[in-house]
Design a protein around this nucleic acid. Structure first.
Lengths: 209, 209
DNA sequence: TTGGACATACAAACTGGTTGGTATGTAAAA
DNA sequence: TTTTACATACCAACCAGTTTGTATGTCCAA
């Protein structure tokens, strides 16, 4: 009866259309990268015409930025099981995070990839918008990991002194590099081995296993 | 007197021209990536016309492959000081390698980048030629590092058991990831911190420091 | 020693197709 | 009736690659 009662029935759903464009972009970009993905291609993938596209996004760059941001939100959601459960021993939180990352390598035979990493490598040197967007996402991941490491420091005896932020950047770099190398060498196992060593490395920082 | 005595005087030097094209490509690609670098741009940078370009390379892909291979040779030469001196304690060799890598971060204010890593991230999922070329270079680096680790295992007591090849992939991934993250976060210091932790990690595998 | 046949190393101009982006039209929703 | 959400048609610039022309070198025969 209310004016918005049948709003779900309307075929026109600009928010969903916008998301469709972002989804299509993510799908294509994860395989081809940004430059190699054309607006025409994105429109086709999303079942749109170019006119519609430029109604939702000012230009290709704006879409790319939106895609990176959406990827960041997705990622945060995927890590939430590990990151959000603060009742957990922070070391156990970190282990759960590693479990989630290992899980990424088992979801399919496609290589594990990260939009942020791909965009960083391809665009951050020339495009300040993408550089800033990627920098933000990388910092977010690192900060979350650093928080757990800091908390772990308080609950566990240390075997080695370390700076949580430095170790977190170390892990972020390793993770990004693992996806990069794993993609080219076509080996998910390589990624899993790296994650195993990283996990052991984190454990080795603390006295009590 | 010989027929080839004055061959150096000729202005036409196809080998040098070819190299000029490769150099130009490397310079442009390290900043913009492969897709974003056009053949016109490369020709302009190399002081060539397109007709000349396609005399030396069958297509853009062939040039890209040549550029990756040349980058690999360059890299091997840069690491030679550490890798080739087999009279050295292999652990010392590894330390020298880390020194060289740290040196890369101090050469200029420009980010430390790797053609192989960039090409891997951008092209290896879609282009089999580049995938194979990058895979080869990544394997070469890893194998060299693994050799030193294997040699180090024989001369030093172990604190932890480890597989040299796995650790070498771990280090390769970390190195590639460090350049990636360092570029986006605009921090050479981040890379140096990562290298410090990696160095300590390698040391931690052995009993005698 | 020289001169001509031939191959090599480029340059200039062009081609068909693609690029990101725009101008304009139209139907649905408010 | 106005605004929003698209579709259609179009554009100039650019893309990788080709065609064609020409200057330069190489080799062999006279």
């Amino acid at each position: 009866m209310s004016k918005k009662a049948d709003s779900t029935k309307r075929e026109r759903d600009p928010a969903a259309t916008r998301q469709r464009l972002i989804d299509a972009t993510v799908r294509l970009m994860l395989q081809q990268g940004f430059s190699a993905t054309s607006v025409d291609q994105i429109c086709k993938e999303a079942g749109m015409t170019k006119g519609g596209f430029f109604h939702h996004f000012e230009n290709k760059e704006a879409l790319g930025k939106a895609a990176v941001e959406w990827w960041g939100q997705m990622g945060t959601a995927l890590y939430a099981d590990a990151w959000k459960d603060t009742t957990l021993d922070p070391l156990e939180q970190l282990h759960r995070m590693f479990d989630i990352m290992v899980g990424f390598t088992r979801r399919s035979d496609d290589p594990v990839v990260c939009m942020v990493g791909m965009m960083s490598q391809e665009m951050s040197a020339t495009n300040p918008v993408f550089q800033a967007a990627c920098d933000k996402e990388l910092n977010l991941w690192t900060t979350n990991v650093a928080k757990m490491l800091t908390a772990a420091k308080k609950r566990h005896k240390l075997k080695t002194k370390f700076d949580p932020m430095q170790v977190a950047w170390f892990l972020n770099s390793l993770w990004q590099g693992s996806m990069l190398v794993g993609k080219t060498c076509r080996s998910q196992e390589l990624i899993r081995h790296n994650l195993k060593l990283a996990r052991d490395y984190v454990d080795s920082l603390f006295a009590n296993p």
